[in-house]
């Protein structure tokens, strides 16, 4: 197994995983593409030494490359391709809803954040009428959100269980 191939797998994996840890979905998509390449190269490296293209009667059998990992790689490439498209569609939808493609904090994280804030300010717990208040921390232009909402059918409060954040 060639050291270059192994190094390529390692490099692709490292950059891929680094990108996946980002908050923006478009970076995550790129990260998964790199990771997909890494797996394909890993499969090829697993197939043993390089050789002639594995077609019958083109070369002596012991000079042919191993065809099985190539078949596996092809399947993996097709799947990765489809999933990249799906991720892009997801990013597009997030952009329609939120105006950006950032992955949001999950429910527990937001609850904890809200509780910490209450404890810091020493307030008694009170119902949080607008969950957007703690949902997003960065600068947020309501006018832009509204114009976005008009474009698409957005159901603001369709999440089960968000309302008990106050309890």
């Amino acid at each position: 197994m060639s050291v270059v191939l192994v190094a390529a797998v390692a490099g692709l994996c490292i950059s891929g995983i680094y990108l996946i840890t980002a908050r923006s979905l478009s970076r995550i998509v790129l990260g998964f593409s790199l990771l997909g390449h890494a797996t394909v190269v890993a499969l090829l490296a697993a197939g043993g030494p390089a050789g002639q293209s594995p077609l019958a009667d083109q070369a002596p059998a012991d000079e042919l490359a191993n065809p099985l990992p190539q078949a596996l790689s092809l399947t993996a490439i097709v799947i990765a391709f489809g999933l990249t498209l799906f991720l892009l569609a997801l990013a597009r939808r997030q952009q329609q809803i939120e105006g950006d493609d950032l992955v949001e904090a999950d429910l527990e994280e937001r609850r904890l954040r809200a509780r910490n804030r209450r404890q810091e300010s020493g307030d008694r717990p009170k119902p949080i009428s607008d969950r957007r208040r703690f949902n997003r921390r960065r600068g947020d232009d309501p006018a832009r959100r509204d114009s976005q909402s008009n474009l698409t059918v957005v159901e603001a409060d369709d999440e089960p269980g968000t309302t008990e954040a106050s309890s």
């Binding site: 797998v9 994996c13 891929g16 996946i20 979905l25 995550i28 998964f32 990771l35 997909g36 890494a38 797996t39 890993a42 499969l43 490296a45 697993a46 990992p69 596996l72 993996a76 999933l83 799906f86 991720l87 997801l90 939808r93 997030q94 809803i97 992955v103 949001e104 999950d106 957005v154 159901e155 603001a156 369709d158 999440e159 089960p160 968000t162």
Partner: peptide, 26 residues
């Protein structure tokens, strides 16, 4: 909204596990 939000995490984690699976196969 909630589906897209949680769907992103779901998809990302499972895709990552699938990549690990494939590397494991290799």
């Amino acid at each position: 909204r909630g589906q897209i939000r949680s769907g992103m995490t779901y998809v990302a984690i499972n895709l990552f596990a699938s990549s690990l699976f494939l590397v494991g196969v290799a």
